[in-house]
Simulated assay, not measured.
Amino acid sequence: MDFTVLEGVRTYARQKRLVAAGASKTMNSRHLVTGDGYGHAVDIAPYVHGAVSWDWPLYYRLAPAVKRAAEELSVPIEWGGDWRSFKDGPHWQLPWKEYPGK
């Protein structure tokens, strides 16, 4: 499945706008640059017929491939689609435990 990167590192101002719009729930986002100088999240989306798709079944098809690639590279990863609340299909992040960013 083709996919595209939507966003990686975000500025504080952009995150603030996303929270205000309801597109994010936290100002403690893994997209923000941390104390180690890195952001620890990326948003990716299926790319269908030349455009980003927001169709949830496609995210469930894409997720196993991303998880498999992370496992093959021994990179721990968390998917927003696995969250119990505020499911976030495009969102992938390095876990806080392994990558505290402090």
Rank of each mutant, 00 (worst) to 15 (best):
M1T: 08
D2N: 15
T4D: 07
V5C: 10
L6M: 15
L6F: 02
L6Q: 13
L6S: 06
L6R: 10
E7N: 07
G8F: 05
G8I: 12
G8C: 10
V9A: 15
V9Q: 13
R10T: 06
T11G: 02
T11A: 03
Y12V: 07
R14D: 04
R14G: 00
K16A: 07
L18C: 11
V19A: 12
A21D: 13
G22T: 08
G22W: 03
S24L: 05
T26P: 01
M27D: 08
N28F: 07
N28H: 09
S29T: 15
R30Y: 08
H31T: 13
L32D: 06
V33G: 00
V33P: 06
G35E: 09
G35I: 06
D36L: 08
D36W: 11
G39K: 12
G39A: 09
H40K: 12
A41C: 01
A41V: 04
A41S: 09
A41N: 10
V42H: 12
V42G: 14
D43G: 02
I44N: 05
A45P: 02
P46R: 05
Y47D: 04
V48N: 15
V48I: 10
H49N: 15
G50R: 03
S53F: 01
S53L: 07
S53R: 06
S53G: 03
W54D: 15
D55R: 15
D55I: 03
D55E: 03
W56N: 01
P57Y: 03
P57E: 05
L58E: 03
Y59K: 00
Y60R: 02
R61S: 04
R61W: 05
L62P: 00
L62S: 01
A63Y: 02
A63Q: 14
A63P: 00
P64N: 11
A65W: 03
A65R: 06
A65L: 12
A65Q: 13
V66C: 05
K67Y: 11
A69V: 10
A69Q: 13
A70F: 14
A70Y: 10
A70V: 09
E71S: 15
E72H: 07
L73H: 13
L73E: 01
L73C: 14
S74D: 04
V75S: 02
V75I: 15
V75Y: 06
P76S: 08
E78S: 13
W79D: 11
G80S: 09
G81I: 09
G81Y: 08
G81P: 14
D82W: 05
D82Q: 14
D82T: 07
W83L: 14
R84C: 03
P90M: 13
W92H: 04
Q93H: 12
Q93F: 05
L94M: 11
L94P: 09
L94Q: 12
W96L: 09
W96D: 14
W96V: 09
W96S: 13
K97C: 02
K97P: 10
E98P: 03
E98C: 02
Y99I: 07
Y99A: 14
P100D: 04
